[in-house]
Structures are given as C-alpha cells and as structure tokens.
Amino acid sequence: MTSLPSMDSRGSTRVSDRTHSRPLCPAGLSLRGLRNSHAGPFDVDVPRGRCLVVTGMSGAGKSVLLRMIADLDPHQGGVALDGVACADMPAHQWRRQVLYLPAEPGWWSDIVLDHMPDAAETRGLLVQVGLREGVLRTPVHRLSTGERQRLALVRALLLQPGVLLLDEPCSALDEATTRKVEALLGDRKAKGMAIVLVSHDQAQADRMADLRRHMMSGHFTGDAA
C-alpha cells in the first residue's frame, strides 16, 4: 500500500501529495485517487466547457462519487478545480463553486423566494427551463416533483458555479422540458462551466456527453471517452 497518498490533518489528501499522479487539469475539475470505503478510487479530468456523463446501475456509487466531489462526505484522495485543491480552500467556498444538485433537492422553507431572489436573472432562468413565473409565489409543497427539480436547478445556477454535479436532473421531466434543460446546460457549458452528469437516460447521455464513464460496484469500468 505504498502508493497511498499521505493525509493532511483534516483527513483528506492534497492533490499535489500524490507523487505518481498526472498533472492537474489547469482549467477544470480533476479527481486524483478520490475514494471512501464505498467507492473509488476515481481518477478523471473534466475540463471547463465539457460534460462527463456517469452511467451505471442504481447503488453502483454514482451519488457517492458526486457527494465526495462536493466534499459532503468524508473521503480520501483529492479533488481540484482549476488546479486548486479542495482541501486548500474553506469547504463552503468549494461547494459554492463545485455545486451538487441531488436527485431530491432539499428546501429549508416553504416559500420559494426564501431560496432565490425575485430578480430578472431568476425570471430569465425560469423561462429557459419552462417554468411559469407564478412558481415564485407558490408554496414549495404545492409544486410538482418536476417543478421542484427545475427550481433547484435555477437556485443552483444563480450561484454561477464553476462545476455542476447533477444527479438525475431530468428524472421527473417530459421530453420537451428535458430538451429545454439540456439547452440551458449546454449554454452554460459553452460559457465555461464543467458538468458531471449522472443519468439513467441513455439518450440524454448520448446528447450531453463529451466524456463518459460507466460505474459498476464503486469503480469506473472501461474508458469510453
């Protein structure tokens, strides 16, 4: 086990400590030996403006991977954005830049406007994902699953993250709305956002992927990139 990277005091590893690893992606997301007891190690680069699609069966560890990238679960190995390691910046700043969108997003209040400002930018995004403006005034519990899913995407995009980690973002959406969401994501990608997308939808994977990985019981299988 001599190749195990050394650990810093916080229990996560600095990317640069791994002597044998490839150089970090200078503009984009780099994973180097990222792992915990359930999944990994994962080594992959997602340059800005690209989308990595991760496919695999339920329970293969796809959400575990996204949670580790966002530093939401304890892990070993490193993640870096634009060459700056996650461990080298305060965790909350990391998460704001490397934003995770869970399959079932949480809401800390029943009032939509507690989660996002009533601004022109918000309204613009609502239109792009096919939501009417009225959702801003509707209690969260009255919204449909699909509406909440898109609202959570709007809430995330308003923070202008550098990387978006998406866990089945269109699972509750019809075909036409899915295309709208994909168009919006494509637009952000063109502006330099990196995306890691977990999807069961093969057609969506084909449309979105610049890079692909398939996960099986906690590991990437063949390199399909």
């Binding site: 939401l72 909350h92 869970p102 949480g106 809401w107 800390w108």
Partner: peptide, 15 residues
C-alpha cells in the same frame, strides 16, 4: 427530520 433542508444549505455554500 431536517436533514435534506440542512444539507440543501450546505450544498449551496453555507458554513
């Protein structure tokens, strides 16, 4: 009970 709500804040950059 509030796990999802707390984590939603953390995910969006709350300390």
């Amino acid at each position: 009970r509030e796990r999802a709500a707390i984590e939603a804040r953390i995910i969006l950059g709350a300390t």
